[in-house]
């Protein structure tokens, strides 16, 4: 017996092929856009400066754009699914604010981009661990408890960030903190991405492997339990993987707005009810958005602009449309 709807499958396949094509095109474009002009023939000819810029800066930046956008899209999808909330994103349990406070600490107390990345990663993880520990105080395992704990941790991290800003040198450190918060792929280089990308990829694989579990968590809590799901443990596991994924990216790039929200919703419009296809396409859309925003950020003005400006230009109107369509559950 054949059970398939050709139209949906065809539409999804077309979306995958065209999405992947756009993603690859943006990836290659990202390699050659920037202040220092790169020429493919000179790179292939072995021009040392061209090769050095290509390998150290551009390739790393394009890889972070590709994998970072994919990761933010997937993480947003997982958050929205397990919290039953169309507006859920990694910010909801304090990842971004924790990373911001960590990055500010790195800027104030250490030197160098690597230390800022390490501190931002540490801040994000501390925030999430704290939120999850707080949520364990409620033994019922309700999803709203995790969200409330996240809001509390977000406020706390914002307070820490404000304190760091107050003591920061207004000329240099304060500007650096503000620029980091606005998000940019400007500081990416091959020396800082290796570990983060490796951990991010491992977590992404785990999220795909566990995607059937995330579907089960999309049911009401009593339903999930009666389907044999250990709700608390499974939600914690998925949250840990998706949060580490996001932490790996935002600790390198600073805050990137709206991709985690926008990408899954865009994918859903195309793939409809196929959960795995939506997840993959959400990642592809995320990659396209981050690569596209980064290309715009370094090409529309004489100086490089924060990437979140462009992701927000796309994301804010979309968020308003979502609110007025009234489909989301707050």
């Amino acid at each position: 017996m054949k059970h398939s709807t050709v139209s949906v499958t065809t539409k999804t396949n077309i979306a995958f092929i065209s999405g992947a094509a756009v993603m690859l095109a943006l990836f290659f474009l990202s390699l050659f856009v920037g202040k220092y002009p790169l020429v493919l023939s000179r790179i292939l000819a072995g021009d040392s400066m061209q090769v050095k810029v290509f390998l150290t800066l551009r390739l790393s930046r394009a890889v972070v754009g590709l994998i970072g956008g994919f990761a933010l899209g997937i993480a947003g999808f997982v958050y929205q699914t397990i919290f039953h909330n169309a507006l859920a994103s990694p910010d909801i349990i304090g990842v971004s604010s924790g990373a911001s406070a960590g990055a500010a600490a790195g800027i104030l107390f250490f030197q160098g981009a690597t230390m800022i990345t390490v501190c931002a990663f540490g801040g994000a993880i501390i925030a999430v661990v704290f939120a999850l520990l707080l949520s364990t105080l409620d033994k019922s395992g309700r999803k709203s408890t995790v969200i409330l704990a996240g809001i509390a941790v977000h406020s706390l991290a914002q307070t820490v960030l404000m304190c760091f800003k107050l003591v920061a040198d207004p000329e240099k450190q304060l500007a650096s903190i503000e620029y980091w918060i606005m998000g940019s792929l400007n500081g990416i280089n091959s020396h800082i991405i290796g570990g983060n990308i490796a951990v991010c990829l491992v977590c992404l694989v785990a999220l795909f492997v566990l995607h059937r579990q995330s579907i089960l968590l999309a049911t009401e809590e009593t339903e999930a339990k009666m389907l044999g799901v250990n709700i608390f443990r499974m939600r914690l596991l998925l949250l840990i993987f998706s949060t580490i994924t996001v932490s790996c990216i935002v600790s390198m790039t600073g805050l990137i707005s709206f991709i985690g929200l926008l990408a899954p919703h865009s994918a859903r419009k195309i793939t409809g009810n196929n959960h795995l296809s939506t997840m993959i396409l959400g990642g592809i859309v995320g990659s396209c958005l981050l690569l596209g925003a980064d290309i715009l950020a370094r090409s529309v003005a004489a100086t490089e602009l924060p990437v979140s400006i462009f992701t927000s230009i796309l994301g804010a109107p979309f968020l308003i449309i979502l609110i007025f369509r009234g489909r989301q559950k707050l």
Partner: peptide, 23 residues
């Protein structure tokens, strides 16, 4: 354990909490 209970007992709620697009 949850799985042991689920093998013994199925549950149908008043209304399912599924809010995601799923076949």
């Amino acid at each position: 354990k949850s799985k042991q209970l689920a093998r013994m007992c199925s549950y149908i709620p008043q209304q399912s909490g599924i809010t995601i697009d799923i076949s």
